[in-house]
């Protein structure tokens, strides 16, 4: 009797908690878990009349199609190489700017610089594509008309010349993300105890020596953790950057097309379910492997930063 009453009280207490969790639970099921089972489309010869479950299985045929095309290699190479370049330059620039911010003692100036370099991060990729167009358009772009023309150089057709794009996309990426990464590194720079610097100053160390022997070594754990986390996402690409900035131009694909752009075009423009689902599952699975490796490494180095 006592026991059932206790149980009743327990449920009276927990039922509201379940109700609180319910909307989020349903959302996770719809948004995250149902698509995980949706992976089976990649192994099906999709027939819309039959629907997803009733369509015929086709094993790894879709993947065979994908990897037989030379696209698979190009999109993988682009995704991975851009990410590596972005990670390296992002760390170097982010830390440099964060250290510079830390050298400025005037609080208002720090806030001003921080806010201004963050403005690009606040904009959508569509807006950034308009800014890029204002600079790069062949006939009315600022660079062709106001920079190259006065120098006597002919107009460059930026949107049809794949060779320039690794540089353009890297600059645009850094332009948009530098504010974000410097805020992150700055918050760990200001976390360093001032005692170290005071002691170093008493010992006669100048600013350069302090940066070299105090700031940089103490930033190392943050840098390592963030870099490994970013390496874990090496198979993901920023769809907005690679879709909007080159204006989804086919001529530029050899140097601009990444996995996400490929999947989008195969799915929405070519209605090629086989190719797009294979590429999307390829990305999800390899991405998962990278995240697991990254997490394993971080758990060894600094357990408190690991995801689990």
């Amino acid at each position: 009797m006592v026991r059932t009453q206790k149980k009743k009280i327990r449920w009276q207490r927990f039922l509201p908690v379940y109700l609180l969790a319910l909307p989020g639970f349903i959302y996770l099921i719809i948004n995250n878990y149902m698509p995980m089972f949706g992976i089976i489309i990649a192994f099906k010869d999709l027939n819309f009349a039959k629907g997803m479950l009733a369509s015929d299985w086709c094993g790894f045929d879709n993947f065979a199609y994908l990897f037989r095309s030379k696209d698979a290699w190009v999109i993988t190479r682009n995704t991975v190489c851009y990410n590596i370049v972005f990670i390296i330059l992002g760390v170097i620039l982010g830390i440099t700017v964060a250290i510079f911010l830390n050298e400025i003692r005037n609080k208002i100036a720090v806030r001003f610089y921080q806010s201004v370099v963050l403005i690009p991060h606040l904009m959508s990729w569509v807006v950034v594509s308009y800014l890029a167009y204002a600079l790069l358009s062949t006939d009315v772009g600022f660079i062709n008309q106001s920079v190259l023309k006065p120098l006597g150089a002919g107009p460059v057709s930026w949107y049809t010349e794949p060779g320039y794009w690794p540089v353009i996309l890297t600059i645009v990426h850094l332009w948009k993300s530098i504010g974000f990464s410097c805020v992150i590194y700055y918050s760990s720079v200001i976390g360093i105890s001032t005692d170290y610097y005071e002691a170093a100053t008493i010992d006669g160390a100048n600013k350069w020596q302090q940066i070299r022997s105090i700031t940089l070594p103490l930033l190392k754990p943050t840098v390592i953790t963030l870099t490994i986390l970013n390496l874990g996402r090496i198979f993901a690409s920023d769809f907005g950057l690679f879709y909007q900035i080159p204006r989804n131009s086919g001529v530029l694909y050899p140097t601009t097309r990444t996995l996400d752009v490929y999947v989008y075009n195969a799915l929405m423009n070519n209605n090629d379910f086989a190719m797009s689902s294979a590429a999307s599952v390829y990305q999800a699975v390899v991405g998962f492997i990278f995240i697991m490796i990254a997490n394993g490494v971080i758990r060894k180095l600094s357990a408190e930063n690991a995801l689990f």
Partner: peptide, 16 residues
């Protein structure tokens, strides 16, 4: 936790 590590990919989400 799992939702952080793994996703079904763009096409599966689109289909669902």
């Amino acid at each position: 936790l799992i939702s952080m590590l793994f996703n079904g990919g763009i096409v599966a989400s689109y289909f669902i």
